[in-house]
Amino acid sequence: MALYALFDIGGTAIKYGVSDAEGHFVKNDTVNNPAKEKGIRGMLDVLERLLLDMKAEFDICGTGVSTAGVVDAEKGEILFASDNIPGYTGTKPKSFLEAAAGIPCVVENDVNCAGLGEAWLGAGRGASPLVCMTLGTGVGGCVIANGKLLHGASNFAGEVGYLPMPGGTLEELASTSALVRRVSDGKGLNVQDIDGKKVFEWAQNGDRVCLEAIDEMLDALAQGVWMTACVVNPEAFVIGGGISAQKDFLEPRLREKLSGIMLPHVFENTRVSFAELGNNAGMLGALRCILNNESV
């Protein structure tokens, strides 16, 4: 049975596991990302140790990496990364891991991987084209057609967070951090004293400030979905990120807003759902990248 080593690299944690070609995990765990304390060398050392340990335990035939940052998937290089992983820009995880373990490796952006995972085994199953939009600290996105990512000429396709809107970009208006900021301003609280989970807890108990802030966020999200639909006309949208845990609360409200702004024919033929794969989405998308790559 072919097995694959998978990583999902974030600013604070590294998820890792071993899966078969159907997405069934035989190993699945998480370690802290030491990049902020020990630099990129420290992070690469952790990746190397984990990969070699998995190779010693299992018959690994390929490695897939889902990672934060703008990625040149062809070269397996980080073109740009924020300070969440200091010094990551210019790093080449693909060549490093291939040299360390002698196993072919593919590297892809984490939002792209999450979208691929959802398109393959999650909420977007069977839909093409598919747009995945993730809401968290920022807003990201990707476009998938016939099971494969559309990267664009500058590896920028699907970056819906940059869509210009009245009052700012989609990211500035619809991210979880924007929601928390609105609530903290409305309540006169320190923004660091609350989080998205708390906002939704208060909203479900009828808190007016939280309900209004969520409504503003959904107004922006609905506009972003409609703007993207005008260009891509996907069969489905999948809304991911931490906010997907609030599916029952958000989905009917979002659909109501979309029905008011989208052309009826487009609304009726566009599926909008929330992500289903949770913390495994990135690794499953990395696995899909391996399977899509004939050289691995």
Results as ranks from 00 to 15, higher is better:
residue 117 G to C: 09
residue 191 V to R: 14
residue 162 Y to G: 09
residue 72 D to R: 08
residue 123 A to Q: 01
residue 111 V to W: 02
residue 150 L to G: 03
residue 279 N to A: 05
residue 259 S to L: 10
residue 76 G to L: 00
residue 241 G to T: 07
residue 48 E to I: 08
residue 4 Y to H: 01
residue 42 G to S: 09
residue 68 A to W: 05
residue 247 K to F: 04
residue 178 A to W: 05
residue 192 Q to I: 05
residue 66 S to Y: 05
residue 128 S to D: 10
residue 122 G to I: 04
residue 129 P to R: 10
residue 121 L to C: 09
residue 101 A to W: 11
residue 81 A to W: 04
residue 243 I to K: 05
residue 19 S to L: 02
residue 146 N to H: 15
residue 97 L to M: 14
residue 197 K to E: 10
residue 138 G to M: 10
residue 56 A to H: 13
residue 183 V to L: 08
residue 286 A to W: 05
residue 93 P to D: 11
residue 205 N to S: 14
residue 42 G to C: 07
residue 8 D to K: 00
residue 6 L to N: 09
residue 49 R to M: 14
residue 112 N to G: 03
residue 189 L to Q: 02
residue 174 A to H: 07
residue 215 D to Q: 11
residue 42 G to L: 11
residue 186 G to L: 12
residue 91 T to P: 02
residue 11 G to Y: 06
residue 228 T to W: 03
residue 119 A to I: 00
residue 177 S to W: 07
residue 241 G to F: 00
residue 241 G to L: 07
residue 218 L to I: 03
residue 120 W to T: 02
residue 276 E to N: 12
residue 78 I to Q: 01
residue 17 G to S: 11
residue 208 R to W: 00
residue 227 M to T: 15
residue 257 K to V: 13
residue 134 T to V: 03
residue 175 S to R: 01
residue 157 A to F: 05
residue 119 A to C: 01
residue 172 E to N: 12
residue 240 G to Y: 05
residue 75 K to D: 11
residue 5 A to I: 10
residue 246 Q to Y: 06
residue 258 L to T: 08
residue 129 P to N: 12
residue 22 E to M: 01
residue 176 T to G: 11
residue 90 G to C: 13
residue 68 A to P: 03
residue 10 G to N: 02
residue 82 S to A: 14
residue 198 K to T: 11
residue 39 G to P: 02
residue 18 V to C: 01
residue 99 A to T: 15
residue 101 A to E: 03
residue 9 I to T: 10
residue 286 A to L: 04
residue 9 I to D: 04
residue 18 V to R: 01
residue 251 E to W: 02
residue 269 N to S: 15
residue 178 A to Q: 05
residue 213 A to G: 06
residue 252 P to T: 09
residue 273 S to M: 09
residue 233 N to T: 14
residue 160 V to W: 06
residue 291 L to Q: 08
residue 58 F to K: 00
residue 231 V to Y: 15
residue 232 V to M: 14
residue 248 D to F: 02
residue 62 G to R: 00
residue 208 R to I: 11
residue 294 E to M: 12
residue 26 V to S: 13
residue 6 L to C: 12
residue 270 T to P: 10
residue 142 C to I: 01
residue 273 S to R: 15
residue 36 K to P: 00
residue 246 Q to V: 08
residue 63 T to M: 14
residue 221 L to H: 10
